[in-house]
Structures are given as C-alpha cells and as structure tokens.
C-alpha cells in the first residue's frame, strides 16, 4: 500500500463495512471469485472502480467487460436467427497453473500462498513475456508516463514504475482490511461473489456446483481462481 494514504475503508459507515466483509473462510483460504453472466448488466462499474481504487492511468484497464456480441453492447445473430448478447467481465483469473508465472524470467510475477498471482513491479524488467503467455490478455504494460484526466492520483495503491507490467491484484490492500475487492463491492447487479474456494460449503463452491460454474478457456489448463456462471435458460412465450 502506498505511503500516506488513508484507507477509505476506515471512513466507511458500519453498514457499508459490513456489506463489504469477506464471508466465512477455511483455515487455508484460496481466494477466488464467481462472476454471474446472468446478472451482469455490462455496466462497467467494477471496471471503473478498479481504475480508481488502483490508480490506473488512461489507456490501461485491469478489468473490462467484454460483449459476447457484434461489438460493444451490440447483439449478434445466433443459430435460428435469434439475437443474443451476454457480457463477460474479464480480469486476471489468478490461475493456479499460471503461464505468466512460469515464463517470467525474474520471478516478478509469483503466487501467494492464498492462490493470488501477484506482481512485483520493483523487480519487473518489462520484458512483457508474461503478456505473451497470459491467455486472457489481462496484463498491461506501463508504456509511458502515466496520464490521468485530473491532477490527482486516485485510490489506495501507489503508482507503478514506468516500463513495468501490472494487472489485477485482487485488491490485496482491501483484503488486508477484511474487505472484498473493490469490483465486488461496487457491482450493482450482485453479479460478483468473492470468497474462499477451499471452503467446501462456502458461497463459491455452492454457486459453482448449483449453477454449473465454468472456467474460461478451460482448454488452456490454467486452473483459474475466477469462475463464471452461465446465463439461465430462457422460457420464451
């Protein structure tokens, strides 16, 4: 966490703090997230709060919402001539078998014991091999000096050095205060659930089981810690 920053969590009202609290967890948690495509309304609140919480400069996004459609927020014709559109929020999947970790020549990207894939931007040499390796395209390079629309830095983490690669940290600065990641906290549709994948009866495990949660690019074998719940079956008139 950056020096001299006061956590906004401290300023939250008790109700808000409770709303953001991390639920039950096992002795050795493996943090993960479930994203519900049925509920996601493609609003980008989670992406925008990520931008502000993590002081992400213009041109870079750790979190973004893809449209399964023709273009941003536009549907596509599916079999039978019907129209369909879904959203797919995408950020670092915190892969258990993380290609980025494997390829980083200097171990600047590495696993924490709680399953999170972290990034040491003080060590990173900016070779961008991890960006090549990541099948999800969630890594961003600090190509130039950061540009912001206002004269102010935002959020709770310090700016990253020029020439290094960065990505979603699962908001470890918030986890440290027992608060869910900013994107989860912000989602107006309740499409994001954060928790411990190791907790067998926890919310994540239950949702994944009951809603047939799936892994994105399962064929890549990355074992992501983020899982998706597919949209429901519709009952047309």
């Amino acid at each position: 966490m950056a020096d001299g920053r006061v956590s906004p969590v401290e300023a939250l009202s008790p109700a808000s703090k409770a709303w953001g609290e991390i639920g039950p967890r096992s002795a050795a948690p493996h943090w993960g997230m479930v994203v519900d495509q049925e509920r996601c309304i493609g609003c980008w609140s989670c992406a925008v709060i990520c931008k502000s919480e993590n002081d992400i400069p213009l041109g870079m996004w750790w979190n973004r919402i893809l449209t399964e459609g023709e273009s941003l927020d536009q549907p596509e014709v599916v079999r039978g001539g019907a129209l369909e559109m879904q959203w797919l929020p995408l950020t670092c999947q915190h892969c258990e078998n993380a290609p980025c970790v494997k390829v980083c020549p200097v171990q600047a990207t590495y696993h924490r014991s709680d399953g999170l894939v972290m990034q040491d931007t003080d060590r990173c040499i900016g070779c961008r091999y991890c960006m090549i390796a990541c099948p999800y395209g969630v890594r961003n390079m600090n190509w130039g000096a950061p540009e912001r629309p206002t004269p102010h830095e935002t959020g709770m983490v310090g700016a990253r050095p020029l020439g290094t690669v960065e990505k979603c940290t699962m908001c470890v600065q918030r986890l440290a205060e027992d608060q869910v990641p900013a994107c989860v906290w912000s989602c107006p549709a309740g499409a994001r659930v954060f928790g411990d994948l190791n907790e067998p009866e926890g919310r994540l495990a239950t949702l994944i089981r009951e809603r047939e949660g799936y892994e994105l690019l399962e064929e890549a074998g990355t074992k992501p810690s983020v899982r998706y719940l597919p949209p429901r079956r519709r009952s047309p008139l």
Binding site: C43, S45, H152
Partner: peptide, 9 residues
Amino acid sequence: GCMKGLSYV
C-alpha cells in the same frame, strides 16, 4: 451507485 458516480472525480 454505478460507473458514472464512480468516475465522478
């Protein structure tokens, strides 16, 4: 709130 309020800065 939504992405608009969140980008009010």
